[in-house]
Design a protein around this nucleic acid. Structure first.
Lengths: 122, 122
DNA sequence: ACCAATATCCTTGCAATGCAAATATAATGG
DNA sequence: CCATTATATTTGCATTGCAAGGATATTGGT
């Protein structure tokens, strides 16, 4: 039983990894929307405000990609102890993208909701 | 402007493709939950009940994978004209997985909701 | 008998993402 | 000077969605 259970847990974990694809970009833009933040601040802030746990290996490639696509931009600044921080903020283009992504997300949530409800007769 | 707009649209389309990853497995299991259905019926039924448009190239590999993982099973039956239909239904293991996936989905939606709300002071 | 149309299903290959693991850089304190 | 802490980067793999093309079975027209 324990083994079956752990196999199920592994499957769910793999699936949840897939489920996050795309969502994380939206999450980053949402989180940067109000004010600039640096990488570690993003990780801890998102963990505190939601049940999402991002790791560095996840967030830094993501931030680089968002910057390359001109959705966010960065500036370097000294922190207190440790390597200099890189503060990221949303560009105007990023805000337009954020609006489109929010719409797409809302539509997807509505679709799953509709399919969760009992099927109507035919 | 038109060119900028179409570039944005392309980006959004690519992103929405990523956003669907994982969700489609949940959608299939949800749709098969009440009664067995065959591939084409799934595509048209999902399109009718939601705003999701799946294509054959999307759904068949997915169905094969779900069957290989023992989340669904299939039986062959004749339809009226055309190739024989393959009816898919959810296995007991698939129902357990569906429960876990529904929980994971709900948690994700709640997380995005929480990050959409204005940031509270610190 | 043949061919076209229709309904259904399958396969291959590519582009994109999340993430573990390892590495790099800078400041501080002992 | 070394260890620790805080922060950022890179590499490579597993997995997915999907376009494109093809395969299979039945029916109807000629």
């Amino acid at each position: 039983m324990t083994q079956e259970q752990s196999r199920l847990d592994d499957s769910v974990a793999r699936w949840e990894t897939q489920l996050r694809k795309g969502v994380l970009e939206l999450v980053i833009l949402l989180t940067l929307r109000e004010r600039e933040k640096y990488g570690f601040e993003l990780i801890s802030g998102i963990a505190k405000r939601s049940s999402l746990e991002l790791s560095e290996g996840t967030i830094y490639p993501l931030l680089l990609r968002l910057a390359k696509d001109d959705l966010i931009e960065s500036r370097l600044a000294q922190g207190d102890g440790g390597a200099p921080r890189k503060y990221y903020s949303v560009t105007p283009h990023g805000r337009r993208m954020l609006d489109a992504m929010t719409a797409g997300w809302t539509k997807l949530v509505a679709s799953v909701d509709a399919l969760t409800a009992p099927e109507t007769d035919r």
